[in-house]
Every structure is written in structure tokens, then in C-alpha cells.
């Protein structure tokens, strides 16, 4: 384990995670809104926001899948020290972290059971840009419509068709994040 793995957690865990969760709550409740978070300093290639999400939501009880470049020794060590989430294959993950291309095919992730739709994966998708431009979002949490730069639309439309099953998505970019729960309808721009 590298020395870097020991740093980069929340300086004040209870208060930092409370503020971070509030951003996540607002992001999930209002799909398409973009929120700035801070407090985590995870190793490359993780964004600050992805680190914040892991520290806020994941622990020894949440199997985690690391995809692509996120699946490197530095990240694995950091996760082991700060979070303790067991690292697993995509099919058994409660949380998955990576770039959209590396998470493919997303049909591997659990979408919940008909009687327990909550038992579905949450994808943390690292992106190069996060702006309110792109596909149209409508649904719960959105007054009329909003727009968000999504990596694609087809997969999210297919996911919406499974409702109330489906995975939920958190998009991260630098120190910002946005939520895309399964309830959101996505239309190509």
C-alpha cells in the first residue's frame, strides 16, 4: 500500500459527509442540476467528486466495481484504507465507478428485483464535461424539462423502460456532480 492511500479522506468525516450527502440528495431529487462538492482528495485518475461519492455512500457493506483506469493499484489501496468496500465484478456490484465506455455493457449491472426495486446498482460515471446542454430530461424532480450532457441516450432510455427497476447514475466531473435516477426520461437532443 502506498503512503498516498492514507491521505485524501474527509478531514471532518461527519460534517464533510453530511454536506456531500446533501448535494447528492439534491442532485438525485432534481435530476440535471449540477452541484459542487469537496473534501476528498482521491488518487488519480479519480475526480474529487467521485472520491466524495465513495466516501459518502460506500463502506464495507457495499460491493464496489472499479472499471477501466479507475481499477488501478492506487485507487484500490485508497478504497481499501478509507472505505473498505469489497471489490467485485460488475454483476454483483452495489456501486460501480468508471468512465462510461469502461462500464459497458451497462446491462451487466443489477437493476433490482420486482419486489425489491431498491436492490439496484448505482453507477458513478466519470465524465470530461458536465453542463446543462444535451439530451432532454423530464420526469420526477423536474418542473418541465432540463438538459444534461450525457455520454449517450439509448442506454438511459433502455434503463427507463425497465422502471421501476433500473440502475441509478451519478455523473462526476472534477469537483461537480449531477444525478440521473432511473425515473428520468431521456430524449436525444
Amino acid at each position: 500500500m502506498s503512503a498516498d492511500a492514507l491521505t485524501g479522506g474527509f478531514p471532518a468525516p461527519a460534517r464533510d459527509s453530511a454536506r456531500a450527502f446533501r448535494a447528492l440528495l439534491e442532485a438525485t431529487a432534481r435530476p440535471g442540476t449540477i452541484h459542487t462538492v469537496n473534501g476528498a482528495a482521491p488518487p488519480a485518475p479519480l475526480s474529487v467528486a467521485a472520491g466524495v461519492v465513495l466516501l459518502t455512500l460506500c463502506d464495507t457493506t457495499t460491493p464496489l466495481h472499479l472499471a477501466g483506469a479507475a481499477d488501478c493499484a492506487a485507487v484500490r489501496d485508497w478504497v481499501a484504507f478509507h472505505i473498505g468496500a469489497p471489490l467485485v465484478a460488475a454483476e454483483s456490484a452495489a456501486f460501480a465507478l468508471g468512465r462510461w465506455g469502461d462500464l459497458q455493457p451497462v446491462t451487466r449491472f443489477v437493476v433490482g428485483q420486482a419486489d425489491y426495486p431498491d436492490r439496484a446498482a448505482t453507477l458513478i460515471v466519470e465524465t470530461d464535461g458536465l453542463v446543462n446542454y444535451g439530451p432532454t430530461l423530464t420526469g420526477p424532480g423536474i418542473v418541465t424539462a432540463t438538459w444534461l450532457s450525457l455520454p449517450e441516450t439509448a442506454a438511459f432510455r433502455a434503463n427507463r423502460a425497465l422502471y421501476p427497476l433500473g440502475f441509478d447514475t451519478i455523473l462526476t466531473c472534477g469537483d461537480r456532480l449531477a444525478g440521473l435516477p432511473r425515473s428520468t426520461r431521456v430524449e436525444a437532443p
Partner: peptide
């Protein structure tokens, strides 16, 4: 918190 986010995802 995890339960709350899932609850919001499936109103």
C-alpha cells in the same frame, strides 16, 4: 443515505 437516494429514484 443510500436508502434515501433509492427512495428518491423510485418515488
Amino acid at each position: 443515505r443510500r436508502a434515501l437516494l433509492k427512495a428518491l429514484a423510485v418515488p
